[in-house]
Design a binder for these strands. Structure first.
Length: 257
DNA sequence: ATGGTTGGCCTCCAA
């Protein structure tokens, strides 16, 4: 099974790029983040025409996630447990082919001096708690999406310049490690243990893309049973180089059978 | 060189 994750930065502004990529990459499942539209405004038909079922959690203007799959997803949940007052559209999870698969958009957390940063850390605590309960259930699972976390110094073009940023602060990285240390496998790093300058995001500003000033912030975390089936994980830089590109590019996970 | 871009929305916010 091939599962892709892609922060599309507005599914409506990106519809041409996205459908063209799906048509060539043909993932079995694709996880979108930052669809930036309400659920009812999601361009369902375009994706149904490509053979996908869609589980969509949208909101006006910001955030928004979706899970698309060739097989109909079941047992869909539309929010991360904990903080029921949290209305931000950042999580959708469903069962596809016997695997629990989530599309998540972890809060950015900048600027650090505001309430946005503690919200990010609380969201990570909630993700950790949810991952713990999924592990206890012993169902194989894949948590994919835009984590807004740079795991290590080699995952950013200039670590010193980013050390006070919410994506790379030591406290953020420590929280990310708390999650992986539950026993999850970060798929790209497992498959490419020595890769450098392997990025999934390049800012629109300051010529970041042509200068390869990127970050690796889009990840797949795999449960032990899912990791046993890990065949490959690759970043497809193609879409980032196109006209009207998202600032993120797809990451593709391959699981056996 | 204290720079620069994009999307959504409505005058700036978020990234």
């Amino acid at each position: 099974m091939r599962i892709a994750t892609w922060n599309v930065n507005s599914v409506k502004a990106r519809l041409g790029n996205v459908t063209e990529w799906l048509d060539s990459a043909k993932p079995d499942v694709v996880l979108f983040q930052e669809i930036k539209c309400e659920t009812a405004a999601f361009p369902l038909q375009a994706f149904q025409d490509l053979g996908y079922h869609c589980a969509v959690v949208g909101q006006k203007a910001y955030n928004g996630v979706a899970l698309l799959s060739r097989e109909e997803p079941t047992d869909i949940i539309t929010r991360l447990p904990g903080e029921p007052e949290d209305e931000q559209a950042r999580y959708v999870e469903a069962t596809v082919g016997g695997i629990r698969i989530a599309s998540l958009y972890l809060p950015n957390g900048n600027p650090v001096g505001t309430e946005k940063y503690p919200y990010k850390l609380r969201w990570m605590d909630r993700l950790k708690a949810h991952a713990s309960s999924l592990l206890a259930s012993e169902v194989p699972f894949v948590l994919g999406g835009d984590y807004n976390v740079i795991p290590e110094a080699r995952d950013v073009y200039d670590p010193a310049a980013w050390v006070t940023d919410a994506l790379f602060r030591p406290e953020t990285r420590a929280k990310f490690r708390e999650i992986t240390h539950l026993g999850l496998v970060e798929a790209f790093r497992a498959v490419h243990p020595t890769a450098e300058r392997a990025y999934s995001f390049w800012d629109y500003q300051a010529g970041a893309w042509p200068r390869d000033m990127g970050l690796r912030i889009d990840h797949f975390l795999l449960s032990p049973q899912a990791a046993d089936r890990l065949v490959g994980c690759a970043i497809d830089k193609g879409p980032r180089g196109q006209e009207k590109a998202s600032d993120h590019t797809p990451v593709v996970l391959e699981l056996a059978a």
